[in-house]
Design a protein around this nucleic acid. Structure first.
Lengths: 228, 228
DNA sequence: ACAAAAGTGTTTATCATACACCCATGA
DNA sequence: TCATGGGTGTATGATAAACACTTTTGT
């Protein structure tokens, strides 16, 4: 009796971008086919027969938004029978992070049907995508504290204040500047560059730092754990 | 072109049981249909058209092993195109924990094709099930330190030594008895019962404790975090 | 000169760790 | 009485938290 299974498999991606101006944003596309025609939805689509799930998300993201992803991991699989009103679709959701350059690039190319929405002002979403976004936000909050994923959302070099603001925005709580800096620096994963921040408005320009991804990977294999 | 998708969706369950004698064990079934006929595999099977993923795992576990699960959560979705040599099958894996009584019960009912295997001596497994088990073990190790899941593997009331041994076995490192007890008790989630351990062999019988699941849920909603 | 943001250190409390002896029971 | 495992406290070091003034830059 389970032989005539008619379930489809799709992937969906929750891609977060961040700027200190707008905070956390999510990449969405406008659907132009039913169901939920004209509604905003997560980028994604049906998995092809010969591709892996990761290949499917990457492909869909490329096709639908043109955004290239630096960090991508599986989030959760959503499989309620009624989550798609037409067919049964099980969706494997992924969770991605991009740096501000990808973010800004996209904002410029505005002819397309893809757009960034700040988390504070998300539109109504198709299917159960609001649930998926909520799950992704929880995951991001969790990961920020026990994995160095915050750097994936910042430029390659960044002033400390950006990192602070990121943590404060996403975790939604105030952070003591001095203690935070001490903790982060003690991890030994940041390198101060010789450059200074370009002045944006007034105030003293900050020193720019760079994250040592390789150093982290090395330490990680020795049982090192990031912790904020 | 993605319209003639032919991918099936299955669920698989990695169910762990624990006794201080045998350590951590996994529930397996013997396959009696190809592929991998006569090999050991995780309980699981194709999802029916009208049921949710959770319903599917629960049903399969019931049908194939008769074991009832206290704790079940989604683990990861495995979707490599070649993971099943015949058809493309995407499998949503779940991660479950049972108490020793379910464990012992099953051991008695030995006519069936389901059996517990100690992690130390797993047989060769069908498909990519060895990978799935490895992923589940990682998850268990992680969860043990930041969520009170250890209690799901013990009897309703248990002596402190059982909890200690569980942590030592699963995390595979020695633990200081006094410090461990202090830490756990400070969480305020354990209640000492008036009973004492029934003597198994020699030595002083230990006090029996009970885990306060409701109390934990209440605290959890107030932003409390378990941490060992 | 002033407004805005960045840089920096010390004190205190809390928590983690290391460590050893006495007690209850069964044989 | 002996062997086995359970119960318990203290001292020390490490880490987290609280907290404010000075410096650099643009206007």
């Amino acid at each position: 009796m389970p032989e005539n299974q008619s379930i489809r498999v799709s992937v969906d991606a929750v891609v977060f971008g961040y700027t200190s101006r707008e905070g956390l944003s999510v990449l969405l596309i406008k659907r132009n086919i039913p169901p939920f025609r004209h509604a905003w939805a997560l980028p994604g689509g049906l998995v092809h027969n010969e591709e892996s799930l990761e290949e499917a998300v990457t492909r869909e993201l490329q096709e639908e938004t043109g955004v290239s992803i630096r960090y991508l991991e599986q989030l959760y699989t959503f499989g309620q029978p009624d989550r798609d009103p037409r067919n049964r679709v099980v969706s494997v959701a992924y969770f991605g992070l991009v740096r501000p350059d990808a973010f800004r690039l996209q904002a410029a190319t505005d002819a397309s049907e893809a757009a960034w929405f700040p988390m504070k002002s998300l539109p109504a979403l198709a299917f159960d995508h609001a649930t998926i976004v909520a799950t992704a936000l929880e995951r991001l909050r969790g990961k920020l504290t026990y994995a160095p994923v915050g750097f994936e959302l910042l430029d390659k070099t960044f002033p400390f204040s950006e990192l602070e603001k990121l943590y404060q925005t996403v975790l939604d709580r105030p952070i003591d500047r001095r203690n935070f800096k001490k903790k982060i620096l003690k991890l030994g994963l940041l390198e101060k560059t010789s450059e200074k921040q370009r002045h944006e408005g007034s105030g003293r320009p900050g020193d720019l730092y760079r994250f040592h991804a390789e150093r982290y990977q090395a330490l990680q294999h020795q049982g090192f754990t990031f912790e904020i």
